[in-house]
Computed example of a mutant assay.
Amino acid sequence: MANLVVRNIDEEVVSALKERAGRFGRSAEAEHRLILTNALLRTKKKSFAEVIAAMPDVGEDTDFERPQGAGGNNVFD
């Protein structure tokens, strides 16, 4: 394993790191490792556009027509 030294970190960031580590019962160093791992190695989530593009092209336009309410009015009017 390699060592990583991070310099010139704002005290506010260091305090937040220590607080977060304390909430989870970890050292600041362990919390720092976990944050870096999650940020850099976690599988990226798909964007909404990617999810939509991956949907299969099934059905007909008529499958998605809005039903007409009483009196021929659109049920959403």
Rank of each mutant, 00 (worst) to 15 (best):
I35Q: 07
E50W: 05
P56V: 02
S15R: 12
L4I: 08
E19Q: 12
E19V: 04
N73E: 15
F24M: 09
A39R: 04
R33D: 06
N38G: 14
E11R: 04
D57W: 03
I9L: 14
D61W: 07
L34R: 09
A30E: 07
D77M: 11
P67M: 12
V51T: 15
V51A: 08
A53E: 06
T43A: 14
P56M: 05
G59L: 12
N38W: 15
R23T: 05
V58H: 11
N3Y: 03
F76R: 07
K45L: 11
E65S: 12
T43N: 11
T62F: 04
A54H: 06
D61K: 13
G71Y: 13
T43I: 10
A28K: 02
K18A: 03
A39S: 09
N73Q: 15
V5H: 06
S47W: 02
L41R: 14
E12G: 11
F64H: 11
G71H: 05
N8W: 02
S47K: 12
I9C: 07
A70H: 06
H32P: 01
E50Q: 13
E65V: 14
A49G: 14
E19C: 03
G72R: 04
E12D: 13
L40K: 14
D10I: 01
L41N: 10
L4M: 05
E12L: 06
N73W: 15
F48Q: 08
D10Q: 10
F64R: 07
V5N: 05
N3M: 04
K18H: 03
L34F: 03
I52D: 05
D77P: 03
S27G: 09
A21Y: 03
V75C: 08
V6D: 03
R42Y: 08
D57H: 10
K45Y: 03
T62W: 04
E11H: 04
P67K: 11
R33P: 02
A70C: 04
I9V: 15
V5I: 07
D61E: 13
E12N: 07
S27E: 06
N74Y: 08
D63P: 00
M55S: 12
M1F: 05
D61Q: 07
V6R: 01
L4Y: 02
F24Q: 10
G59Y: 10
Q68N: 10
